[in-house]
Nucleic acid binder design. Sequence first.
DNA 1: CTGAAAGCGCTTACAG
DNA 2: CTGAAAGCGCTTACAG
Lengths: 339, 339
Amino acid sequence: MSKMPTVKDVAEYAGVSVGTVSRVLSGEAAVKPLLRERVNDAISALGYRPNVTARALRTSRTDVIGLVVPDITNPFFAQLAASVERAALECGHSLMLASSHNDSEAEQSHVSAFLDRSVRGIIVVASSDGSGLDLPASVPVISLDRRFGTFPLVSTNHAQAATLIADHLYGLGHRRIAYIAGPTDTEAGRMRKEAFVSRMDGFGKTGEPVELEIAYGRFDYESGERIARELLSYPPQDRPTAIAAASDQQAIGALRAARDLKIDVPRKLSVTGFDDISLANLVVPRLTTIRQPADMLARRAVSLLLEEPPGKGDEMVDGSLIVRGSSGPCPQPGASGRK
Amino acid sequence: MSKMPTVKDVAEYAGVSVGTVSRVLSGEAAVKPLLRERVNDAISALGYRPNVTARALRTSRTDVIGLVVPDITNPFFAQLAASVERAALECGHSLMLASSHNDSEAEQSHVSAFLDRSVRGIIVVASSDGSGLDLPASVPVISLDRRFGTFPLVSTNHAQAATLIADHLYGLGHRRIAYIAGPTDTEAGRMRKEAFVSRMDGFGKTGEPVELEIAYGRFDYESGERIARELLSYPPQDRPTAIAAASDQQAIGALRAARDLKIDVPRKLSVTGFDDISLANLVVPRLTTIRQPADMLARRAVSLLLEEPPGKGDEMVDGSLIVRGSSGPCPQPGASGRK
DNA sequence: CTGAAAGCGCTTACAG
DNA sequence: CTGAAAGCGCTTACAG
């Protein structure tokens, strides 16, 4: 292939200086219509495309937004990534996506790599409450969904959302409840759990007492399945009547465990999730969960990043309760055994 | 933040020329140990990091591999992306990921964007058999899983794998089978279907006849659910005893439909998928499917891309049959209705 | 409004 | 083995 044409070629072809070419390219500075037209003709005649690397070197700016997620294989993050890409595109920016495999070292090095490429800004969905960044960030950084270092956070209001689930289950009459929590080294995991627990404690004080058992795991299918299997191995009268999980994946794993143990959901056991991944509406039974407004979160994160000066304050977006088939009234004691 | 140090600063600090700094950076050229050490000291003292943009401009090369997938929200592509990232990292390269939302224009523009950034090479999982690229590609391009333009393809041997499924179902005694195909504008969709059909035709000629119905959809959950619902609405004696789907997502949708219609899988109906996404092992019943060796595919694609000269020939990797609970012997006629 | 020129931070022939 | 210098393709003060 022949070498790509440069501003110089365009300038020669159009009979102007490279400065003029650059000026019509930027669209900013005023250029006489005649010259502008000659330049544009030259550009299309030559099939010229600006060299973004040179431009970046000169201006130390690009239109790339870097996004790092803990694990692209997690459906919620995949959806979030798709939303961020759409939001970036809407603002005329493109997205570079990196997955850190839940490894905070990899996370660090991805962020550094973005910095090295002088991206316009970086959005990070932290893999854990790491120390954040030890490099000086020369571009804006926004935490999304989970806090990264001390950078501003855009996230669902985890506490409000967890409260919605607590109210739902308590309202259905459940008084022996298990909570499958997310990793304690993630803010999302902690906040969801604490809000859920404190709401239940509140009910316990003002109304009927609630037995609450808490188990900790990762956010994935396997954790949910393993933990639920354990919780459900108790004799029926000691077994929870509802399991609230900190993620849809955990909840789907719990559904799987219940199924294996032939425990009818929702008649004998209610299960709830968190995220509303697309699968939540497809499992059997369909999962009651919290919808996180991914599009909104993405748009807010991109906006904060691109604002001048970049946004400094945290932003919370409310989640909403989606009631489906996996949650129902607490089974009456003694009404079991109808096989 | 103060300006980042440059080779010039390092050179001054170490009392050498910038050329020497560059040479120790590259590690290639021989530099006297004494100077090398002084330069390295200067680098760490100053916290110097090479400017990759400048380097890219000068050499018109980077260590970035661009990957574009049709939809990052599809679990199979997410897994493939994770595998490609790992493979790239192993070779000292980093990954830029873009999702085309199944839009071939977006796909084109992502590829162009990569080209503009002078990436080391591009791997594309085509969203459809587009015209491929109309720009001159100045770097190697590899098609992964689905052919992009005329670029070399690394993929599972779709035909061999589809044959495995056909043999499995025929071997279980199924003679009235429905096939949920993928989009006909994807090579993967066509090849899987054709191999399945031709294998069944072969059985029909040498053994017992097979009734085969084919329905076309996208690769997603919804298509599978919708199509299966239709297929299963026939009266029991006309209904297929097995549904083979071109993707796990379709198969999981079909499972959902069967469940809604109270058709017992696998006793009344066998369902098979293709891909072996992590969910396949979690649905109820667990899904019989074809495992695509994502890690291997990813590694081969990266290798071909990085070879000098870049690989030119297609590569096929065999898939393997994973038998789980969703497939079983063909139900005996008349043995129904045991409610 | 336009051109000539400097410079972004590197790498790499070219001399020595 | 090392230094001085050119140049990658842009953008942007600086003159005019």
